[in-house]
Each structure stands twice: as structure tokens, then as C-alpha cells.
Design a protein around this nucleic acid. Structure first.
Length: 530
RNA sequence: UCCCCGAUAGCUCAAUGGUAGAGCGAGCGGCUGUUAACCGCUAGGUUCUAGGUUCGAGUCCUAGUCGGGGAGCCA
């Protein structure tokens, strides 16, 4: 039945199927015309709701007395002898954090099935939403045969003793080994919903501001994207691969694309081309790095968001980055309050206060050169750093953490880094910027407590002669960058952008510690089981 | 890739070089509008893999595999 609520016969006249497919049904009437039902899920229109049962999320806000059907997976089952015999079966369908408690009376035919339900079984439950007699939940589903109650066990758990996510606490390390089932737990269900919420908020942020979403390629023929080791894409047989005439290398002219290709490590160079026509654009897609990184902050396959703005300088770039992060935090606090409450109580105490503080505080902006002075002063007054502080060297993790966690205790945007440690495409600053002792580029890193670098961005070098000089300095072949250089030859404009690691954002927002626990099926060195 | 730590029941962990244990989970029973339930009973083991030392190895040694923490690379 569309709109999810099992309807009493007098209400509505159209058949459930016709209502489901009716093009003319107005929003809010998805429950077959039942007035009460229309208030349950006012935001659901016919197009949005195509189920004949009720999501738990919506059952919680339905009026007492509503007949409902719930479909989902058993979280817990407790039995009582009270009232002639009851089973308390908590059912979750993932639509919200809380499962709903179904109270099954012993008078139900086949009550023995209810008694045998264990964690993980899939069920369909018909019942009536009632005010709960017990503590711990406001409403519950009473399954009483006298009121049309029914239980249908759809799938049993074949051996409850070995069910991998039994009803007990499990470590995240263990759950990673059962990634196909871990989403049935509180934590991973909450992560999945928050991840979705953030994904939608990313698109909403840019769409509302006139940015266009650009699908940059996953397979790249440029070996010049800059960032680190790449995964090869090839259809050649590794044992019989063709060799070049001198026999010393693989002849990729026989390969699928006729040249050597890899998985992308960044959509930036491609998205800059669309920026140079559509003004404000962004990508949001998978990114691949073949680095042998074994940390809680790195994945071989991760998702990255890369906006690119025409006629934009570094200052505005940083303002957009700050607005963006705050928009995403606001979205998740308001839309996933149930999951965020869980993270706040069970994953990181004080999480919500921390995020609220981020919302209320302007990000601290300071030049790299000044950050070096602060770190030198800290070292001089006794703070121990493993690595020396020196203008011109990249900041180590410990330095970034000191700035954002100890010194400022808030997100910090470092700007204008030494040219020598940054990428070729970053715009070279005028000499003497920030009183720096050597040349700098218009780069920025957004550092947040607990995570470190969450965003890296820059104003791009729009001057062809300067860009060419940079390519030469870094020993890069200009011919490889012919189309990227063309952007500077034909109507070049100042532009800027940044990259946000999506999984790092989720870590920041949920308080989760390991990046492998905020992506459904993590890919990392020696890890691609699922 | 480097440094450190770890791998024993479905899960989390104990176990002087000398008989393999507990809690949780699971099964059965009791009690109870239950809800991290509680009480009793029961089942459950190739101690990561391959070598080695020893009368005897979960325990000691070597190598490997996988996992965790930190570092580097970065988002």
C-alpha cells in the first residue's frame, strides 16, 4: 500500500496498486487519503514513497491507533510470561537510529516462531501502533491477533551461535572483517545515514550557489596529475604483454586506450577546464591513490569533493571552504539528530558541543610564515617537537596538531606556503608576501582538531609564462600538459579551488577514529575482500 | 615503507615451559511489560601459518601472514 500505513477499509477508494502509480495523487495524500496518515510523512509524495509498508522512522511519528506493517531485521528479542506471554522484538529497517519494539502476544498463531526469533532474522510484522506500557519507548507495535496482528518470518538466521554480529559489543577491527553485515549495528547504521546526509548536503550546498556538478573521468591518460602513485588500468595480459622495440618496456600502444592509463588521483585538472566555461563547478567522485599508506586517515579508494571557481582568489577560496564545512555540520546536526546523539554519547563525548563551537567560531586564518613563528616560539618555551621547525619545510603532523589542537583550539586555515614544497599549478605570490624570506604560492590547508588536514586548496597559476617556468623548474614535460596550458592561452582567468576528503569529513563530524569505518567497503593495502 | 604492540571458544580476554579458563553471545529451563534484564544448566578449541629448541610449547627462538597504534606520503 502506498504511503505505508495499512488502511482501514472505509478510507480511500482506489486500490493500493493504483494509488501507488497514480500520477495525480497530491503530495501528502500518499496514504490512500487517510487524513491522519497525510500528516505522518508530509514530505513524502507519491514519487518518493513506493512501499506498501511503513518505515520505522515514520511509524514513530504516526498517531496511536494506526494499523501498521513493519518490515526489517530483528535487533533483539526478549520474552516475558506477563499478560499470558509476550515477545518483545526490536525491529530495525535502518530508516532511523532506533529500532521499533513489536510486542507479540502468545495468542498469536505461530507464537513459537516469535519465541525462536534471534538477532538478524528478517520479519514482516502487522500490528497497531500503541502507547508503550513499558519504559524506554513512547510507542510500540502491538501484535494481537484480535486486532489483525500477524508475524511473518521472512528469513531465519541459520545458526545463531555463529551469527557474526550477535547482540553484544564488537570491536570495530572485528566488524571490518564482516563488512557485509556490520551495517546492521548501531554504529555502522548511523555512519551510513550520516554519510548519505553529508553527500546530499554537498550537492545542495553547491547547487544552491549556482555551481555545476561535473563528472570528471575515472580513467586518466595523463601521468601528470601530480599526486602520488597511481593504479594502472589495462586490458593487457601481464604475462604476454607486448614490448617496445628495444624490449625494455611495455608497449601500451597495443593496450585498450592505445596509451598508458591509470585511475585518477584527482579531478582537479579536468574540472578546471569546465570552470573556464561554466564559472563555478565541482566534482564529487572516487579517487585512487596507490600509496602504501597504513594509517587510520588514508584509503586507496576514497571520495573527494573538488570545487573550482573562476574569477576567484585565495581569500574567497578559503571563505567558501569555511562556509562549506559549516553548512555540512549544520545539515548533519539538524537532519540526523538521532545518529548524532548516539555519536555524542557513545563514540566521542562532547562531539555536539565541539561541532557547535566550530559553527560559532570564525576559522583562524594565518600565513604559513606566521605559523612558523608561533611554532618556533612554542619550541623555545619548552614544547617538544620530534621534527625541527624551519621556514621552507613542510609542517609535520605534530606541528599541525599543535596549531589546531593546542594553540588555537579551533579550525585553522594556513595560507601562502613556500613555493618549493607545493604543486606546480599553484599561483606564485608577489615577492615579499607575508614578509616571507623566499617565494610563496597561494596555497591553503584547512586544519581541524583531531583530523589534521581536511582541505587542501589553492589559487591556480593563470599566467602561462609563470606556469611554464614552474613546469620547467619541477622537471615536468610541458607537452604532457598541452590542454591544461591551453586554458592559459585562450581566455585565462584567475581561479581557485580546493579538495575535501569526504571520509575525513565524516571522521570529523562523527568522532569515529578510523577512516576504514566510515566507508562501506574500505580499500587499503592488502584489503579488498568485499 | 619504517618503529612499536598483538593474534587462544561465535566475540572480548585469562592461563610460572607441565590437565585449555572466564565473561558476553548461543541452546535448554526458571522468573519477569521486557529493554546492557536477572537466576540455573549445557554445548562450544587444529591456541594465525611454517619451521626450530625441549622429555614436554598457548607460553621460548626464526620466518611469514593478518590486525592495531605511531610516523612518512596526502585528502
Amino acid at each position: 500500500m502506498p504511503g505505508s500505513v495499512r488502511r482501514q477499509p472505509p478510507e480511500g477508494t482506489e486500490s493500493p496498486r493504483s494509488a501507488l502509480h497514480s500520477e495525480n495523487e497530491p503530495a501528502g495524500c500518499t496514504h490512500g487519503g487517510a487524513p491522519a496518515a497525510a500528516t505522518i510523512v508530509p514530505h513524502l509524495t507519491r514519487r518518493h514513497s513506493y512501499m506498501s509498508w511503513l518505515h520505522v522512522q515514520h511509524a514513530f511519528s504516526a498517531p496511536v491507533g494506526t494499523p501498521v506493517t513493519i518490515k526489517g531485521w530483528v535487533r533483539t528479542n526478549r520474552e516475558s510470561k506477563a499478560d499470558g506471554g509476550l515477545c518483545f522484538v526490536a525491529v530495525s529497517d535502518g530508516s532511523c537510529f532506533e529500532p521499533i519494539q513489536c510486542v507479540i502476544r502468545a495468542s498469536l498463531p505461530g507464537f513459537d516462531q516469535a519465541q525462536r526469533l534471534t538477532t538478524g532474522c528478517s520479519v514482516e510484522v502487522d500490528g497497531v501502533l500503541v502507547a508503550s506500557q513499558g519504559k524506554g519507548q513512547a510507542v510500540e507495535v502491538l501484535v494481537d491477533p484480535a486486532q489483525g496482528g500477524a508475524l511473518r518470518v521472512v528469513g531465519w538466521v541459520e545458526n545463531p551461535d555463529t551469527y557474526p554480529v550477535s547482540n553484544k559489543r564488537h570491536t570495530f577491527e572485528y566488524l571490518r572483517e564482516v563488512a557485509h553485515l556490520r551495517v546492521r549495528t548501531n554504529t555502522f547504521g548511523a555512519v551510513a545515514r550520516v554519510r548519505h546526509c553529508l553527500s546530499m548536503a554537498v550537492h545542495r550546498f553547491f547547487h544552491e550557489r549556482g555551481f555545476f556538478y561535473v563528472h570528471t573521468p575515472i580513467v586518466t591518460g595523463s601521468d601528470c596529475e601530480g599526486a602520488g602513485q597511481m593504479f594502472r588500468v589495462s586490458t593487457l595480459d601481464m604475462l604476454t604483454r607486448p614490448l617496445t622495440d628495444d624490449g625494455k618496456a611495455c608497449d601500451f600502444s597495443h593496450d585498450f586506450f592505445g596509451k598508458e592509463t591509470h585511475l585518477t588521483v584527482s579531478g582537479q585538472l579536468n574540472v578546471e577546464t569546465y570552470c573556464s566555461a561554466l564559472s563555478n563547478v565541482y566534482t564529487f567522485g572516487p579517487t585512487f591513490r596507490a600509496e602504501n599508506s597504513n594509517t587510520s586517515r588514508h584509503l586507496a579508494e576514497f571520495w573527494m569533493i573538488e570545487p573550482e571557481m573562476a574569477f576567484c582568489d585565495l581569500q574567497r577560496d578559503s571563505e567558501i571552504a569555511e562556509d562549506f564545512i559549516k553548512f555540512l555540520i549544520r545539515a548533519v546536526l539538524s537532519e540526523r539528530a538521532d545518529d548524532m546523539k548516539f555519536f555524542d554519547e557513545r563514540i566521542e563525548k562532547g562531539l555536539i558541543a565541539r561541532l557547535t563551537h566550530v559553527l560559532d567560531t570564525p576559522f583562524r586564518r594565518l600565513p604559513y610564515t606566521e605559523a612558523i613563528r608561533i611554532l618556533e616560539a612554542a619550541a623555545a618555551s619548552g614544547t617538544k617537537f620530534e621534527f625541527p621547525i624551519r621556514w621552507g619545510a613542510d609542517l609535520q603532523s605534530e606541528h599541525e596538531r599543535y596549531l589546531t589542537e593546542v594553540h588555537f583550539k579551533q579550525p585553522v586555515i594556513l595560507m601562502n606556503y613556500p613555493k618549493s614544497i607545493k604543486a606546480f599549478y599553484m599561483r606564485v605570490n608577489d615577492p615579499g608576501t607575508d614578509g616571507a624570506p623566499a617565494e610563496t604560492v597561494a596555497a591553503m590547508d584547512v586544519l581541524v582538531p583531531g583530523i589534521g588536514e581536511i582541505i587542501g586548496g589553492s589559487q591556480r597559476e593563470e599566467r602561462l609564462d609563470v606556469l611554464d617556468r614552474r613546469l620547467d623548474e619541477m622537471g615536468l614535460n610541458k607537452a604532457d600538459y598541452w590542454w591544461y596550458r591551453d586554458l592559459r592561452r585562450y581566455g585565462t582567468v584567475p581561479h581557485a579551488g580546493f579538495g575535501l576528503g569526504f571520509e575525513r569529513l565524516i571522521l570529523f563530524v562523527t568522532g569515529m577514529q578510523n577512516i576504514r569505518d566510515v566507508i562501506p567497503f574500505p580499500r587499503a593495502p592488502k584489503q579488498a575482500e568485499f
